[in-house]
């Protein structure tokens, strides 16, 4: 059987929120090590990879690996009923035909429980190679969210270029062009406010702003976001979840025809 108890149930709720605009049906894979998700959007343009280590949980038992096939709109409806400070418990039998969810709150003494029917989902898995990227940028996730939101008024495509000058986001449309440049900045005492740029060689790639905006739904999970780019490769946008896991998005670039 599978049983997992997460004191800060809100983390799981935020993970669901970070994915649900990209995919509808998803398998959560449970192993003795972690809960993980790998899924693509229906257009096969973006891929989400989530991992939450068993060490994030107060209690974690997984007798044999299983996949929990979930419909995210339904899961999201259930999580709307979870309080901010609730503990979350997940339970499933090895047959994995239903998932028990419990939201407990010691302070108010409430226990809410839900039984969710699981689905068999045929998921296309992709082998994502471990690549050494030419540019790696760490920046405040709120800043990244603001930039990709603001640039939508200029156009549909965002050119992201990493040079010696810094990291530049550009969008061009009918009304003109907008550029936002982020320079390396490690002046603040708070590490989460730092912008660090590791560049081996300059990279310039074009991406759909619509997708970049979907990814910023993960902002509440992490104060920092890490962008990794190499010429002609999908960008990786990673939101680390403390030391316990991550939500990573891969987005295929737009290329010249």
């Amino acid at each position: 059987m599978f049983e997992a108890r997460l004191a800060n149930g809100n983390i799981f709720k935020m993970i669901v929120e970070s994915i649900r605009e990209l995919v509808v049906d998803v398998n959560i894979d449970c192993s003795t090590e972690e809960l993980s998700i790998q899924c693509m959007d229906s257009a096969h343009v973006a891929l989400v990879s989530m991992s939450l280590s068993q060490s994030a949980f107060d209690h974690f038992r997984c007798d044999r690996s299983l996949s929990l096939g979930l419909n995210l709109p339904n899961v999201s409806k259930i999580f709307k009923m979870m309080g901010r400070d609730d503990t979350m418990v997940l339970k499933a039998e090895d047959s994995a035909d239903k998932l028990m969810l419990m939201f407990e709150n010691d302070k108010s003494g409430t226990i809410a429980d839900f039984e969710l029917k699981l689905m068999a989902i045929e998921a296309e898995q992709l082998g994502v190679p471990d690549t050494a990227y030419k540019c790696s940028i760490s920046m405040p996730s709120s800043e990244f969210q603001r930039i990709v939101r603001d640039l939508q008024v200029m156009g549909d495509t965002c050119k992201i270029s990493c040079t010696k000058e810094g990291l530049k986001f550009s969008a061009t449309g009918q009304i003109g062009t907008g550029n936002i440049l982020m320079r390396q900045n490690v002046a603040s005492e708070k590490e989460e406010d730092h912008v660090t740029i590791d560049m081996e060689e300059p990279v310039e790639l074009n991406f759909a702003l619509r997708y970049l905006n979907f990814f910023t739904k993960a902002t509440p999970l992490s104060p920092t976001v890490i962008l990794k780019m190499s010429p002609g490769l999908p960008i990786v946008i990673e939101y680390p979840i403390e030391q316990l896991g991550h939500v990573k998005y891969y987005l295929a670039p737009k290329m010249e025809e």
Partner: peptide
């Protein structure tokens, strides 16, 4: 004009 690529051109099926 730019064309949106898909992930299949970059990643393999395992």
């Amino acid at each position: 004009p730019l064309k949106q690529g898909t992930l299949f051109s970059f990643f393999n099926k395992p």
